[in-house]
């Protein structure tokens, strides 16, 4: 039944063509003597259902790509189409509409400390009001179940471990079945086991829900999760590596098993 809800939402976000198209994108911070160009003729295309890792040294422009593609920043030069929307002429309202169709995951989970886990995830559905999802509670439960956090639905973020918070943030990002997920270093604050688990979860969820993922990361431990790895340097793409991944089915089976194994080893958190 939950899958049917996911499909219903996905249909509303359905669009043809790549999730992201960017061409000849240039971006400069500052002006005059202090001006610094962080993107130089940047080009990328991310297909629906594809998971792309964006890697490179600090300051090479990875995060700027995310903010531009995510309609969080105005485009200065070049072309970006996100989820079928040309961002060159998008006004504030149009950019907000694009953001609502994207799931964002941050290095710092940025959960509301005053809201429960369930309410935090509900905020990602509430943003679509006055449109109301058919079964918001079921959608939230399904998202929590997907990330293995259903038992913590009424807990506050302060009572969760770092890995658990990040899993809640993932549930928040995917609950409305967005067509695109933009993630910035989602494993940076996590240990190896939790980091791996988060990436596998993301991959698993993205494949099942048909979302494209563009993830900025420095974490070399998760490279095998990607369909494609894009390396950047000084605002330019310097290398693109397409990976041969296991089939979705076998990957999902392995990641779910791993996740269960890790949860079994993890100490139970008090609500």
């Amino acid at each position: 039944m939950i899958d049917r809800h996911h499909r219903d939402i996905a249909h509303q976000h359905e669009q043809s063509g790549p999730a992201i198209e960017a061409a000849a994108v240039r971006h400069t911070f500052g002006s005059g003597d202090t001006a610094r160009q962080v993107l130089v003729d940047f080009n990328i295309e991310v297909a629906q259902g594809e998971m792309v890792l964006l890697m490179g040294p600090s300051g090479c422009g990875k995060t700027t790509v995310l903010t531009l593609v995510g309609a969080l920043r105005s485009l200065q030069s070049g072309f970006i189409r996100t989820l079928g929307k040309d961002l060159r002429e998008a006004d504030e309202r149009a950019m907000i509409e694009v953001r609502r169709r994207i799931g964002f995951i941050y290095q710092a989970h940025n959960l509301h400390q005053s809201l429960t886990v369930r309410e935090n995830i509900g905020m990602a559905l509430e943003v679509h009001r006055p449109r109301v999802f058919a079964n918001e509670a079921d959608l939230i439960d399904a998202a929590l179940d997907d990330v293995g956090m259903l038992g913590w639905a009424d807990a506050f973020p302060a009572t969760l471990s770092g890995g658990q918070k990040q899993r809640v943030a993932i549930a928040r990002a995917v609950v409305a079945s967005p067509s695109l997920i933009l993630a910035d270093e989602p494993t940076a604050a996590l240990d190896k086991a939790n980091g791996r688990q988060v990436v596998d979860l993301l991959h698993d969820l993205a494949k099942r829900r048909g979302s494209a993922i563009l993830m900025v990361t420095h974490d070399s431990r998760i490279l095998d999760a990607a369909d494609r790895i894009v390396e950047m340097e000084d605002g330019r793409i310097v290398n693109v590596e397409t990976r041969q991944r296991p089939s979705t089915k076998s990957f999902n089976q392995s990641t779910v098993k791993d996740r269960r194994d890790q949860q079994a080893c993890e100490p139970q958190q008090q609500k």
Binding site: R99, R100, F104, N110, V127
Partner: peptide, 13 residues
């Protein structure tokens, strides 16, 4: 502020 900025990123006005 970070939480409000997150809400804006999620599409809140």
């Amino acid at each position: 502020l970070p939480e409000y900025a997150t809400l804006k990123a999620m599409g809140y006005t």
